[in-house]
Amino acid sequence: MLNHPDLHQTKYVEEFRNFAIGGTAGIIATTATLPIDYIKVHIQCLAEGSRGARPSPLSFAKQTLKTKGFLEFYSGLSSAIARQSVYATTRLGLYKTLVDREKEITGSDHISFWLKFLYSTIAGGIGAIVGNPCDIALIRVQTDHQLPPEKRRNYRGIFDALYRIPKEEGVLAYWRACTPTVLRACALNFGMLAPYDQCKEFLDKSLGYGPMNRIYSSLFAAVCACIISMPFDNAKVKCQRMIPDANGVYPYRNFADCCVKSIKREGFLGFYAGFSVFVARVGPNVIITLLTLDMLHYMFDR
């Protein structure tokens, strides 16, 4: 009975649904928060190499709106959607699938926090590796106009960027800065998924099942995700947008070199440049993602 083909087919459908729901939740959240992500990336870039006063996110947003219009905040939308269709689909779908399989093996409705940490970290890392090419394209499309005119790449969009990057820099350029991207994804996935599930289980047990428990848990997960992942996000952006000097030498050799140089030039708090914007972007993104995940699973898993 356990090997009945219909049972296997049902299991594969359920696991496919996990990935489809994960990607859908990621795309919805990213589309809603892309303007904030645009401001966050530019604030980080403008603060690079400086210990002085950080650019004001509000003044930057006003200036951008005045000079370039509202649609400028959605530059790179196609890249963001393409990235989430790969990245979110993988990291969220894989985590849910691993958790479901663990529960099936143990026959329990809950798993330990250690396993939540392990599965969320694994899923985040794999998702980052798969989605890194689109992530590189998104960062470059968003920040290309900040470079001096002679150094701009002038990508026409994500597909142009994805086509030109390996052609001009080699296929391995797709995974430049992959280390900070993977570390950032592991930190973010762990920060949002493990605390969310743990807090949700605690509140359901203490207060009884209720929709407000999901909202409280998502707020708690958003705080954890922001604090844990911000330094990795900062280093990731710096490594992904770097261009070689006249001698063909990049400013950072690797992730560790980027961290050391950043601390020397900007201090440790430099990793949290634009933190308010980061929280404003990642916090709602985490909350929307988690609540959308729960809603879609409630609708389609019944």
Rank of each mutant, 00 (worst) to 15 (best):
T67C: 10
T106Y: 02
K66Y: 08
I122D: 05
D144P: 06
L118E: 04
A80M: 12
A137Y: 14
A53G: 12
K68G: 03
A137S: 15
P149K: 14
L118S: 04
L162C: 04
D100V: 01
E102F: 06
I126T: 08
H145C: 03
R101F: 01
R51K: 11
T121Q: 01
S56L: 01
I122F: 15
A47V: 02
G93I: 04
D160Y: 02
Q142K: 05
T67W: 07
Q142A: 10
S85D: 01
F159T: 04
Y87P: 07
T89P: 06
D100H: 02
R51P: 03
S56K: 01
Y87D: 10
G76C: 03
L118G: 04
Y155F: 15
R91H: 14
L118H: 05
W114T: 15
I139V: 14
P149G: 04
A88K: 06
G124V: 05
A161C: 15
T106F: 02
H110K: 13
P57Y: 00
R83G: 01
I105P: 00
R152V: 10
I105E: 11
R54E: 15
L98S: 09
I126W: 09
V99M: 02
A123R: 04
D109N: 13
T121S: 14
R140Y: 04
G127T: 04
Y95D: 07
G127I: 04
K68P: 05
F113K: 07
L162R: 03
C45I: 10
G93W: 02
Y95F: 14
V86L: 15
I136A: 09
F159R: 07
V130A: 15
A123C: 06
I43P: 09
I105H: 11
Y119K: 11
R164A: 00
A128M: 01
R164C: 01
